[in-house]
């Protein structure tokens, strides 16, 4: 069992957990993820590692409540434990000094873009960060990101905080202003990564995205996470999770993410129903 040492509610339906997982931090590098399973009957889901502490043997993850599994996790308290944590998984992010790097985080994707932003800054890059959220209540990691970015722009869909609009709107403004961009890293909902990649392709700016396809074992064994990159089938878990955004077939990714829509809704409804009865 893996103990929850800290739990912090940082937004509506968004929690930060510090979990005891002594083996995971040992070889961790930014860009990698864990697979967790909440309890005996639980499913296995991939979650990106936001931070890992080698000395304490802990990892930090941000989890948005969207389905039964993440709601079950959200209902746990400090001191509770989850049944399984395995990782680190996937290839680490390639962090080099390339000049000006724009890191774009959408929603809970900001939790993933954060360790990479930090790593790119530490590697000597000029880092411009753009973070997009639904509204003010959902804004996370602003201070942390500000600390590791040369410029930070926050966007909200409704304009309740930062600027009103999407991350791509700010990206467009940077482009319009003739700003130099050597590399864009975009992590967030598939649709956001798609939009960013479409835009940067026009301007010929290399773009890396982190794909969140459905995974089970996450060791290459099941192939459930397969994605198309440059016309070839790749496994997001062992070949990724990061890929060249200009080559990813996002429409296929978005469709494949909907595979279990019905079952997910059924599971969540019955879970919430049970909770109401309690």
């Amino acid at each position: 069992m893996y103990k929850i040492l800290k739990k912090e509610k940082i937004g509506p339906n968004l929690n930060k957990f510090v979990i005891e997982a002594p083996l995971v931090p040992k070889n961790y590098q930014p860009g990698q993820f864990v697979v967790i399973k909440v309890d005996e009957v639980g499913e296995r889901i991939p979650i990106t590692i936001a931070e890992a502490d080698k000395d304490k043997g802990t990892i930090t993850i941000f989890v948005q409540e969207v389905g039964k599994t993440t709601y079950k996790l959200g209902a746990l308290k400090e001191g509770d434990a989850i049944s399984d944590v395995v990782g680190p998984l996937g290839h680490p992010a390639k962090v080099d000094k390339v000049g000006t790097v724009v890191t774009i985080g959408g929603g809970v994707g900001s939790a993933i873009i954060y360790p990479e932003t930090k790593a790119f800054k530490e590697a000597g890059n000029y880092v411009i960060s753009i973070m997009g959220f639904r509204n003010k209540e959902n804004v996370i990691l602003e201070e942390e990101m500000r600390k590791h970015s040369d410029e930070l722009y926050i966007m909200t869909d409704d304009g309740s905080y930062g600027k009103k609009g999407f991350t791509t709107d700010e990206l467009q403004e940077l482009e319009n202003a003739g700003r130099k961009m050597d590399l864009v890293i975009a992590i967030g909902p598939a649709i956001m990564m798609k939009k960013v990649s479409e835009m940067t392709k026009q301007y010929n700016v290399k773009t890396i995205v982190s794909l969140n396809s459905t995974m089970m074992d996450a060791t290459g064994m099941c192939g459930g996470c397969r994605v198309e990159v440059g016309g070839e089938t790749k496994f997001a878990c062992v070949d990724g999770p990061e890929f060249d955004g200009h080559k990813v077939n996002f429409d296929l990714l978005i469709k494949r993410l909907s595979t279990y829509e019905k079952q997910e809704k059924q599971a969540l409804d019955s879970y919430k129903g049970c909770k109401l009865e309690e």
């Binding site: 009957v41 639980g42 499913e43 296995r44 039964k68 599994t69 089970m216 074992d217 064994m221 099941c222 192939g223 459930g224 279990y260 079952q263 997910e264 059924q266 599971a267 019955s270």
Partner: peptide, 24 residues
């Protein structure tokens, strides 16, 4: 599905007992 995914969902994750088990 790959057979691995299909069988792992059923055998290891007990998808045949969904929704008692969470894996669909």
């Amino acid at each position: 599905y790959s057979a691995n995914e299909f069988l792992t969902r059923i055998n290891l994750m007990k998808a045949y007992k969904f929704p008692e088990y969470d894996t669909p």
